[in-house]
């Protein structure tokens, strides 16, 4: 026992102590290797021997920090002793904002709404015609297509001189272009870039709406901005094309100022709703009529005694009756 005490006392003389006394304990953030000493400076020492004092002060604080670090759990990694640091306490700002998840593409949105789930397809499939395993995609798939389509049927209703191979190739390139366009649109949407509308692309892929847009724009593209263009009986103008229609402005119509005008406008809306007639399709009516007559004839043939189907009320004909609207003044509407 005495030996041990003696040894420790001799150790104390041999080595300097690692203990440091502080009035207020330091704040540590071991994750950042940070120590904060909130004790006041010794103003005398600071003024007289600034650098020595700072050295001594920092030594004490570093000693305290190292004491804390040495108590952390250690590990041995490749001949070196490492300590596991706790999570950093000091909150530092990030460089860049937190990444947001990629917005869904138009198809993904649609599929999600409809509950469409992607099915897994086999990578290889057996081709009965070629007696070969054909991959789902890739150059071998393209090769097999070529092998299979060495001859193409000419449909009945097309020009026999038309090259079907070229037509097929063209259709493929159109589909690729369309896909690229859609991809770019999705990219632009994700990056919030405004892109101009594409316009009318191709008669094969465009829809009825595109046609309407094309007509509206083409009609207004005269020197007089389409004022003297004739209108077809049931023609409607495409909506939302003000930015590509010459002479059209996107300004909204202001609501009427006086009460009288507002009243008449509102009454007109109510009238238009109340006066609505059921939609009649001439074809459907004619078909129905023909059908009824046929049934009558059949029943008469079978049994002349029963005359059930003879109750024929007058059906309204499509052409009869007053139509709303009618022909307006010539030229397109002024905006």
């Amino acid at each position: 026992m005495d030996d041990l005490l003696l040894k420790s006392s001799s150790n104390d003389q041999k080595y300097k102590s690692i203990d440091v006394n502080k009035l207020i304990d330091l704040n540590y953030d071991l994750g950042t290797l940070l120590a904060e000493d909130t004790n006041d400076f010794d103003s005398n020492l600071l003024n007289q021997k600034k650098n020595d004092y700072l050295l001594q002060l920092t030594r004490d604080n570093t000693q305290l920090l190292i004491n804390q670090i040495w108590e952390l759990p250690t590990e041995r990694v490749e001949e070196a002793i490492v300590v596991k640091l706790p999570i950093q306490k000091t909150r530092l700002p990030r460089m860049k904002p937190i990444p947001k998840p990629r917005p869904l593409t138009r198809w993904e949105e649609f599929a999600k709404a409809k509950g469409i789930v992607k099915k897994k397809k086999a990578k290889l499939s057996w081709d009965e015609h070629l007696k070969k395993w054909i991959p789902l995609y890739g150059f071998k798939k393209a090769q097999s297509e070529k092998e299979k389509d060495w001859v193409l049927e000419v449909p009945e209703n097309v020009n026999p001189m038309e090259d079907q191979f070229e037509k097929k190739l063209h259709a493929k390139s159109e589909r690729v272009a369309k896909n690229e366009l859609q991809r770019l649109r999705n990219v632009a949407k994700a990056k919030k870039i405004k892109v101009p509308r594409v316009g009318v692309t191709n008669s094969d892929v465009s829809t009825a709406k595109d046609l309407q847009v094309a007509v509206t724009v083409a009609k207004s593209s005269t020197a007089s901005l389409g004022k003297f263009q004739k209108e077809l009986p049931k023609e409607k103008e495409a909506k939302g094309v003000a930015d590509i229609t010459p002479g059209a402005s996107r300004k909204r119509k202001m609501p009427p100022v006086s009460g009288d005008v507002e009243k008449t406008e509102n009454l007109a809306i109510v009238d238009s709703v109340l006066n609505k007639r059921p939609k009649l399709s001439i074809d459907a009516v004619v078909d129905k009529r023909v059908n009824i007559e046929q049934v009558q004839r059949n029943s008469r043939d079978k049994s002349s005694s029963s005359k059930k189907g003879k109750s024929t009320a007058k059906k309204p004909k499509g052409k009869a009756g007053q139509r709303k609207g009618g022909k307006k003044g010539g030229g397109r509407k002024r905006r």
Binding site: A35, D37, L54
Partner: peptide
């Protein structure tokens, strides 16, 4: 480095 902040 170890960072030491001194002073209240």
């Amino acid at each position: 480095p170890c960072l030491v902040f001194n002073g209240p």
